[in-house]
Amino acid sequence: MSELLRVENIYKTFSSGEETLNILNGVQLSLKAGETISVTGESGSGKSTLLHIMGGLDTTDSGSVNIDGVDITKLDETSLSELRNKKIGFIFQSHYLLEEFDAVENVMLPFLMNNYNKNEARKKAVELLVKVGLGERLHHHPSKMSGGERQRVAIARAFMNEPPLILADEPTGNLDNKNAERVVELLFDLSRERGHALVIVTHSPTIAAMSDLRYVLRGGLLVQED
């Protein structure tokens, strides 16, 4: 398998008044296409920050992040947005669905950004929603859905443009155990079935165990677990 993501010597510090906090101290990571990895660590260890940096949502103090051979730390805002749209799918702890749109429309949005073909987008979004078990909820707005259903819509949205890389930031953090289990299974199944690489940030050892490789973020460094 070819290398999809390469993170090299990432440093990130946060300043709070006179205090400087070194969150990431030279993080290294390599991820092959279709591979799934988990990142665990204590609260505040920088897991989400690392994920945001990998997705180009946050900046680094130094180091590089290569996605498909492109160093995203050197891209301008427009190129970075284009790359995010085509190569990365995000899933967050909260679903962050747009309340004004129904499930299908929420899923359609990433597709419509570079190809404003509503019919094609709708067809694809419906397929994905049926796949995640929401065939009966296509036209429900987020306020009329349960937490688990909303998160499944968010998963479908992340897969809509068939990005090679899925970044999931504690996707089950707001869900009860039953829903969390279902969502995670769905996430891993979809990634493996479609050959997408998955980086999942989690507190749960059970979820971490489902990935091909497990990493723990400790002292600002990413350490692989057996």
């Binding site: 427009t78 749209n85 995000f90 570079n114 949205r157």
Partner: peptide, 14 residues
Amino acid sequence: KREIGILRSTGFVP
């Protein structure tokens, strides 16, 4: 603002 964040994450430019 969170919806703006999600739109940015899915590819919207400023």
